[in-house]
Amino acid sequence: MKWLACELHTHTLHSDGSQTLEELAAGAANLGFDAIALTDHNTMSGLIGKEDLERKYGLRIIPGMEWTTFYGHMVTIGLNAFADWRQVDRDRIDEGIEAVHRLGGIAGLAHPFRIGSPACTGCFWEYEIGNWSAVDYIEVWSGTFPSIQTNNRRAFDLWTQKLNEGYRIAATSGRDWHAQVETEEPISVTYLGIGDNAVEGSGNSISLPIHEETLIQALREGRASVTIGPLLTFKLNAGGADYPIGSTVPSVVESPEAAAEQPIQVKLKLDFSVRAGLWSLPTQVCRLKLYSNRGEELSLEVPFSSDGQMMQLEAQLRESAPDIPRRWIRSELWGTVRGAYVRIAFTNAIYFEEGGYPR
């Protein structure tokens, strides 16, 4: 699987940004992104000329729009036409999400716990969602150095809560990029996983044309990993088959004892070579963790050094007559960044079917 570096929340001077689309594309290319989503507030007019810029800078520009209302901001990407945001009130956001889906797009909550009115009109999410199954993703990291921000921690906790409730919702980051200004703060990246044959070239390099629907489908299916540093991915091997991020491990009704005899193999990978020279971490021993709806299931020490190597680790998950069936599992990398102990990276979930124990 190839992992493409994406920035999924950007603005130009067609809304409240102070950059042209070309300035945005050039800046994204310089930061090692393979794709960006243009999500101007309540307009898609900024996409004019995107095809020429895609060819010039070698990155995909995904059409999108940030619904900006009194009750919340909703990032919509991948639409083939304008979805009218003006008819949706506080208890009818489900209708808006349905309209986005009809037009081929996906919808996510933008910075749901950022301070709201009057400091930022509608930035705090107040919509009443009736059908959480229709929500495609939650922007759990917003802004630069997102892992230290309290509002992002609340968004991350909301995502975890919904996973525990049985919903399959992806998690992303978004810089909410408005201007070409340099920052020394860590920048987050959402990596989307696509099939090896989806693009030409080798490694993680992108070669246009790659259809934007390929990236949208990856996010729709939760094939995503988020980081302010190395790329973290993992997969499970159960019953002789591999299950990558976003997939579902099938179940079979059998005893816990039988499942314990065939433990699930966990294969974790850290790629320190991605976007070389565009991020840094101090030399340290990090902590690689696995979390599920049961809580922390595994914790491993991982030495980090800036030699740009790939690191692969393996572990096992064993059943021991659990009172709580495992519904999902994700991996996280923890360490020190600028003196703070934070999440450096996290993956989206691998899911488990209900009604039995993993094969």
Rank of each mutant, 00 (worst) to 15 (best):
N237C: 03
G116A: 09
R287Y: 01
P322K: 01
G240D: 12
S45M: 04
F70T: 14
I245N: 01
D136M: 10
A321I: 01
I216A: 06
G64F: 08
G222N: 10
E54F: 12
M65S: 04
C120E: 15
L290W: 05
D94Y: 02
G116P: 13
L290A: 09
W132F: 15
G46Q: 05
G108I: 00
P186V: 08
N197R: 13
D136T: 12
D157Y: 11
W328Y: 13
R55F: 04
G105R: 07
G58V: 03
A170I: 12
P263S: 06
G108W: 00
N204G: 11
T172Q: 07
H41R: 03
H111R: 04
P250Q: 06
E221S: 12
R154F: 14
I115R: 15
L333I: 06
E213G: 02
S202W: 05
P146M: 05
F272M: 15
R154N: 11
G246C: 07
A170Q: 09
S133T: 09
Q262M: 13
D94C: 05
G122M: 07
S273M: 03
T20Q: 00
E257V: 11
S147N: 14
G246F: 01
D84I: 02
M1D: 11
S173Y: 07
S207I: 13
L79Y: 02
V266K: 01
C123F: 08
V140C: 04
S18M: 11
I228Q: 09
S273G: 10
K289E: 15
M44D: 11
L79K: 00
N131V: 03
W132T: 05
E139L: 04
R330I: 06
G105Q: 06
G72Q: 05
T336Y: 00
L163F: 05
D323L: 06
R90W: 04
Y57I: 13
L103A: 08
G229A: 08
T227C: 13
E297N: 07
I228V: 15
V266A: 14
R318V: 13
Y291G: 03
T10L: 07
R154Y: 14
A83Y: 06
P256M: 00
L163T: 11
P63E: 10
T39N: 10
L158C: 09
A218P: 10
P303N: 04
G229I: 03
G229D: 11
Q309T: 09
V189M: 08
N42R: 03
L4D: 09
R275T: 08
I350R: 00
W279S: 13
A170K: 02
E185Q: 15
V135F: 03
W125D: 09
E332K: 00
G46V: 07
D323R: 00
L192P: 04
D136P: 11
L79I: 10
L333C: 02
T10M: 01
L281E: 11
Y71K: 06
E221Y: 04
H211K: 13
T183V: 10
Y351I: 09
L219Q: 09
